[in-house]
């Protein structure tokens, strides 16, 4: 290894150590503020130790909020994924159809633009009134939040098909339908994937809100109910779990995207 590489390695190690120290300082300060100085009572701000114990506790116990951590995760995943899959199944073909068929575009886009500005959260009360508190309402809410990015990105993906490629297909005698499947959709795949990625993110985010207001299990519910139970340590456990699963989704989809979507975004 030459000088240059050695220097780079040294820098990486140096900054890596700084990062680790920074994290340690963060946790130490947190610990001191709570367990040592008791700046705020336990039920408002837990110490890191309490969070960890609560987590371990939650692995098996269902009290006080009705399920173990796995029970909550399971409920959340069930809701999130069903709404998400539905949103994708409806949204992607709709987006493609809107972009490919001019009449569909002119008719559906104004309606879509009416629905789009309403934030997903604002749908919650309506969905509760229509579907009651249960899987139906939650899945419907998640559906709306996953549906919109899928449509938008599929639409943009098809729209970015270069006319030149379509002309080439035409000279080979492709019918309109064949062109859709052999040229347009493959070109659109990167953006469709982006739409899937964004939808999963918004679905997971909206899940929290949906569960807080319309549920009796799941991570969002856990966050909500433990407020009235004054168990801030469980709230933090739930928050971190939500974050962790969200990260797993993002990283997972990113690597899937890298493997299956060839050629990247360049036309």
């Amino acid at each position: 290894m030459n000088e240059y590489a050695k220097q780079r390695r040294k820098n990486k190690i140096k900054f890596g150590i700084v990062s680790v120290i920074s994290l340690c300082v963060f946790f130490t300060v947190w610990y001191i503020c709570t367990a040592v100085l008791h700046l705020k009572p336990d039920y408002i701000l837990p110490s890191p130790v309490q969070v960890v114990t609560a987590f371990i506790d939650k692995l098996t116990r269902t009290a006080p909020d009705g399920a173990t951590i796995f029970g909550h995760i399971g409920a959340s995943l069930q809701v999130a994924l069903s709404g998400y899959v539905l949103g994708a199944i409806v949204g992607i073909p709709l987006g493609i159809a809107m972009a490919w068929f001019r009449r569909v575009d002119m008719f559906v886009t104004p309606l879509f633009d009416l629905i789009r500005p309403v934030p997903t959260i604002a749908w919650i009360p309506l969905m509760i009134l229509w579907f009651g508190i249960g899987l139906g309402a939650k899945a419907a809410i998640i559906f709306v939040s996953a549906f919109v990015p899928c449509v938008i990105n599929s639409y943009a993906g098809i729209k970015q098909t270069k006319p030149v490629h379509l002309w080439v297909a035409q000279t080979f005698g492709a019918s309109r339908r064949e062109m859709l499947f052999t040229v347009a959709i493959p070109t659109a795949l990167p953006l469709i994937f982006t739409g899937l990625r964004i939808s999963l993110g918004t679905a997971w985010m909206t899940l929290c809100a949906a569960e807080m207001l319309a549920s009796n299990k799941g991570l969002g519910y856990m966050i909500q109910v433990n407020r009235s139970l004054a168990r801030a340590d469980l709230i933090v456990v739930a928050m971190l779990t939500v974050g962790l699963i969200g990260t797993i989704f993002t990283v997972g989809l990113n690597s899937l995207e890298k493997r299956f979507v060839k050629g990247g975004r360049r036309g």
């Binding site: 290894m1 030459n2 000088e3 240059y4 590489a5 780079r8």
Partner: peptide
């Protein structure tokens, strides 16, 4: 120029 594996 120095890079990780060679010099140029």
């Amino acid at each position: 120029y120095l890079s990780i594996h060679k010099s140029n």
